[in-house]
């Protein structure tokens, strides 16, 4: 065999890498048709939300007085227009982007707080763990929707605040999951080894615990994003969501539901978009869980 040939390189690499847990998981995930289809759908959604607004000939807040309440496929409006003659497609794409962004950012906020809180509590254990988890239990028993509403009322309806408020509510479960996982990790040999090598607790958490939490955390993240999107739409329905003329899927559905007898398309398209997006996230989450679940091997 000629040194450096592609075959040899591949062979060598395989020999070194072996089949990791992640490879296995990926293969299982790829066999899950619903999950794969959902990933494709989601990829399309994200692309549309990012690129779409540049392709549609209308801006999401352009008022066209002559085009009020046009039905789909008329006057160059693929999905029709609303009461102000704004193009629904443009608004839908903008709204999808906002909803996805809220989902991702709020979930990241919850991820950050939850992972730090849970891993510290789980790893250090003892009294501190008890106190930290008591705090989580306490927060669990608060009527959270009330606090989100209070936050909105207190600080005004600001899109960043929506991110923050929802994220701050979602981190509790994350911290519980992370703590449970950390507890089971911390007695493993490789952690012992790291400790023996003289690494500090902080270093061990950052370098060894957190990376190994990835599996369950990824699953939870994919399930949190749709929960956040629903939560935002709920706030929108109560009139506490994003500020117009900006749109989110929630505000579009809320206004669409008002006009549904006269302009059903204003309800149908945003609802469909929302349902498809949420289902995609859910199927991916389920698929990931199945793929990563060792019980199922």
């Amino acid at each position: 065999m000629i040194p450096g040939s592609p075959q040899r390189k591949a062979l060598l690499e395989n020999a070194v890498k072996g089949r990791s847990l992640w490879d296995d998981a990926r293969r299982r995930l790829m066999r899950n048709r619903a999950a794969v289809a959902s990933m494709v759908v989601l990829a399309v959604m994200v692309t549309l939300a990012v690129v779409g607004p540049f392709l549609v000939p209308f801006h999401y807040d352009t008022v066209t007085k002559t085009d009020v309440w046009m039905s789909p496929m008329t006057g160059g409006h693929l999905l029709g227009t609303d009461s102000l003659g704004r193009d629904l497609l443009a608004r839908l794409l903008a709204g999808l982007g906002v909803s996805l962004a809220i989902g991702v950012v709020a979930t990241s906020v919850s991820l950050l707080i939850g992972v730090v809180w849970g891993s510290v509590a789980g790893y250090l254990g003892g009294r501190l763990d008890e106190v930290m988890m008591r705090v989580v239990d306490t927060l669990y028993s608060l009527p959270f929707i009330f606090f989100v509403i209070l936050l909105m009322v207190t600080f005004g309806r600001n899109i960043f605040l929506i991110f923050l408020a929802i994220g701050a509510v979602e981190w509790l479960t994350m911290s519980r999951i992370v703590r449970g996982q950390t507890l089971s990790l911390k007695d493993k040999e490789f952690i012992e080894a790291a400790r023996a090598a003289g690494l500090s607790s902080g270093q061990i958490i950052a370098r060894h615990i957190v990376p190994n939490l990835l599996g369950p955390v990824v699953v939870y993240v994919t399930l949190t994003i749709p929960a956040v999107i629903i939560a935002e739409s709920f706030l929108s329905f109560l009139g506490l969501g994003v500020q117009p003329p900006m749109a989110s899927l929630g505000t579009l559905i809320a206004t669409g539901a008002q006009d549904m007898e006269m302009a059903p398309w204003l309800l149908i398209f945003p609802s469909l978009t929302m349902i498809v997006t949420l289902m995609a996230f859910n199927f991916i989450g389920d698929g990931l869980r199945d793929a990563l679940d060792p019980k199922d091997r």
Binding site: F144, I166, E170, T173, G285, D296
Partner: peptide
Amino acid sequence: MGFIFEKGFDVMSHHRNR
């Protein structure tokens, strides 16, 4: 709100084997 997917997380697995 976020309660939807909480708690049940670790038991909600779909199992492929019969």
